[in-house]
């Protein structure tokens, strides 16, 4: 009887947390609408968030995408021409870089860098009673702390995904010059003739959704800390773990939608 009671209690607790999370997301979206119309007070927070999440991560993204583009070209050009299917290298580049690895790798890097930073930052603010101070002075902490981070992370993920594509495809061209030199006109013609608008739209949608997920999860876990600084590392770990899980699930769902 006690076991049933425990299971019921945990189920109720999970449902309550899920409902709370849904309410948290709805509140963020609602406050985002207001932020767009009146952003003077928190514009600097947004700028700094994009600087930390986007601009500072650009070198990491560029290095990774260059390397992946190079590997795809080396592997592809060593195998595909043997079967007379050298043209398929463009399809592989687009599928791997633009449609799949671009958004998910960018999101994982952002989650690892900025998701953890946001969770620990907000957790520290809770522990040091800054959130209470905001509330006491009549400032909505969601609007002034969460929404700029949400927009900043989402925009940064979207823009970083664009850079990932640019560097990935450019990097593959640079490597092609060493393996099988072709003119830029031929390369761009093959690439632009193969890429479809739906590939770009799919990539952009994924990056926006992933950015939103990372910011939702990180702010949620950061504000979920109650009083002790020892809760901060736990919240950071939970933030990363939940972010990665949700990102992979969302990627699977969006890829499925793409093929429907």
């Amino acid at each position: 009887m006690r076991v049933v009671e425990q299971i019921g209690s945990r189920a109720i607790d999970r449902v309550a947390r899920a409902l709370y999370a849904i309410g948290f997301v709805v509140e963020i979206l609602r406050q985002t609408g207001r932020f767009v119309t009146n952003r003077r007070a928190t514009a600097k927070v947004l700028t700094m968030q994009i600087l930390f999440t986007g601009v500072d991560a650009l070198n990491v993204i560029a290095t990774i995408s260059l390397g992946i583009g190079a590997v795809i070209v080396i592997q592809g050009l060593s195998i595909l021409p043997q079967f007379g299917q050298g043209q398929l290298i463009y399809n592989i580049l687009i599928v791997v870089i633009t449609r799949e690895l671009g958004p998910i790798l960018t999101a994982l890097i952002v989650a690892a860098r900025s998701g953890t930073a946001i969770a620990s930052d907000l957790g520290n603010m809770v522990v040091s009673h800054e959130i209470e101070a905001y509330t006491a002075t009549g400032i909505n902490p969601i609007r002034h702390l969460v929404v700029p981070r949400f927009i900043g992370v989402t925009v940064s993920t979207f823009v970083l995904n664009l850079y990932f594509n640019i560097f990935g495809l450019a990097g593959s061209f640079l490597v092609t010059q060493f393996v099988n030199p072709i003119s830029f006109a031929e390369y761009s013609s093959g690439l632009l003739g193969t890429i479809a608008l739906v590939d770009i739209v799919s990539s952009c949608v994924k990056s926006v959704v992933f950015g939103a997920i990372i910011s939702f999860v990180a702010t949620f876990h950061g504000l979920a800390i109650e009083r002790s600084s020892t809760e901060i590392p736990v919240a950071v770990i939970k933030s990363v773990g939940h972010s990665v899980t949700l990102l992979i699930l969302a990627n699977a769902v969006l890829t499925l939608v793409y093929y429907l």
Partner: peptide, 24 residues
């Protein structure tokens, strides 16, 4: 820095779309 970061990405995306439209 943020402005350049975003504008360059948008310019690249627009250029890509224009080239795609021309090529396709």
């Amino acid at each position: 820095a943020v402005g350049v970061f975003i504008l360059l990405a948008i310019a690249a995306a627009v250029a890509l779309l224009v080239l795609m439209g021309s090529n396709q």
